[in-house]
Each structure stands twice: as structure tokens, then as C-alpha cells.
Amino acid sequence: MESMDEEAILSFLTDNAQLSDIVTRQQFIAVFPKDKRADPAVESLYQDLAETRLRQVNSVRKNVRLECAVSSRSMQVDLDNEQRDSPEAVDGDNEIENIYSEIIPARVPRKLTLAEMVSRMQGAVSKLTSELDFIDQDSKRMIEETGAIVDSLSDLRYKKLSAGSVEQCLSGLADLHSVLIGGDMAT
């Protein structure tokens, strides 16, 4: 049984929410160039959009009903607890979980066999190992690139700069900066 609040919310959110309420078929077709308006694909597109919109509206209705049921059930539990004057507090999380389980069928977890568990664990170990190998290779590559840049800047370290090597030095520093800031770290 729908409550007055549920009806009001549903009315507010879903009345006049169909695609035909927002844009008529003729208005939709008029948006297209004149030579494309008679194309059956335009009609098909409108139909697809109308069906998608209908699924969205139905989803909103379902979610509103679910939330109203949860709220109603929760309020009823609170009222029952007050009337009973029970010193025991009802755990709200468990109550909401129970309400959802009544409305939405619960998935029964399948128990894994030992062989399946070992297989999944080996798969996880394999994935982690490959990720660590990738990180290791990437780190080695970055160290090599950084070393090459530092070597190219050795003239700066030993103060052996000629007039033409200032530009080369600045270029090397820019390369080093891009490597350190994240140019290659994101890969």
C-alpha cells in the first residue's frame, strides 16, 4: 500500500517524465535537416530514446518505492520499540539490511572448494608478481634515464661549460625535471 508521501514523491518525479512529455515526435524530427527527416533511422532513434527514458522512469519509481518501504519499516520498528518500552536497542543497520533482503532477493554465496581457493590465490599471486615486475622494470628504466641525464650534465658538475653547452645544459635540466615531476612516472 502506497503512502501519501510516496504518491507525492512519485508524482513529482515521474509525472510528465516520459520523452513524449518532454519533446514530441514531430518536434524531435524537426531538429534534423530536412533531407534526413524522412529517414527511418530518425524514427528509430526517437523510439530508442523513448524506451531508454521509460526504463529510467521505471527505475526511479522502483527506487522511490524501495526507499519509502525502508523508511516506513524503520519508522514502524521505532514506534514498536517505543510502545514496548524495551531497554534493548534495535540495531538500525541490521534492520535496514533485513528490509532490503525482504525486497531484494539475497545472493547465496557459493562455498569454494579448497582447490578453487588455491587456484584463485595462485592467480592473485601471479597478478601481483607481474605488477611488481612491471614496477621494477619501470623503476630501472627511470633510474637509467635519470643517470643518462645526470651524465650529460657532468660538465656542469666539473664547471667545464663552454658557450655552446649552456643550451645543452638547460635542455638536460628540463629533461630531468620532466622525468622527476612525472613525465614518465605516470606510465
Rank of each mutant, 00 (worst) to 15 (best):
V42G: 04
L176N: 10
M121V: 11
S139I: 12
M142C: 02
T113W: 08
S74C: 03
V90G: 02
Q83W: 00
I99W: 01
S165F: 00
M75V: 05
D136F: 00
S71D: 11
E88V: 09
D78R: 12
S126W: 00
I181G: 03
M185D: 04
L173I: 15
G183I: 05
L13C: 08
F32V: 01
D48K: 12
D133R: 12
Q56M: 15
G172M: 10
L153E: 06
L132T: 07
R37S: 04
E6D: 03
L156R: 13
S101Y: 03
E82V: 11
Q26K: 13
P33M: 06
S74T: 12
L10W: 03
N98R: 09
L114I: 12
P33H: 06
L10R: 09
M75G: 02
Q137S: 04
L153S: 07
N16Q: 14
L114H: 12
T14F: 00
Q18T: 08
L170N: 08
L161I: 06
I99P: 02
V108S: 10
C169P: 00
D93W: 09
V77W: 09
R120I: 01
A50I: 05
R53W: 00
S20A: 14
S101R: 10
L54N: 09
F32C: 02
I149R: 06
A174F: 00
A17H: 11
L10H: 05
N58I: 03
F28N: 07
I9C: 15
E7R: 14
D136R: 13
G172F: 02
V90C: 04
D15T: 11
M121P: 00
Q26F: 00
I181R: 10
Y158E: 13
P33L: 10
N63D: 09
L132C: 03
G92T: 09
M4R: 12
Y46N: 10
D133A: 12
V77K: 13
S178T: 13
Q47W: 05
V31G: 10
D184R: 06
T14Y: 01
Y46C: 09
Q168I: 08
K36W: 07
I103P: 02
I181V: 13
S165M: 10
L112H: 11
A106N: 05
D15E: 15
P33I: 07
E97D: 08
P33D: 07
Q137R: 10
N98P: 00
A30E: 14
G183F: 00
M185H: 04
R107M: 11
S178P: 00
T113M: 14
K159F: 03
P33F: 08
G182N: 03
L114T: 13
L176C: 08
P33R: 11
I149N: 04
T146E: 13
F12N: 06
S162N: 13
K34Y: 02
V77A: 15
N98D: 04
A115T: 12
D5H: 04
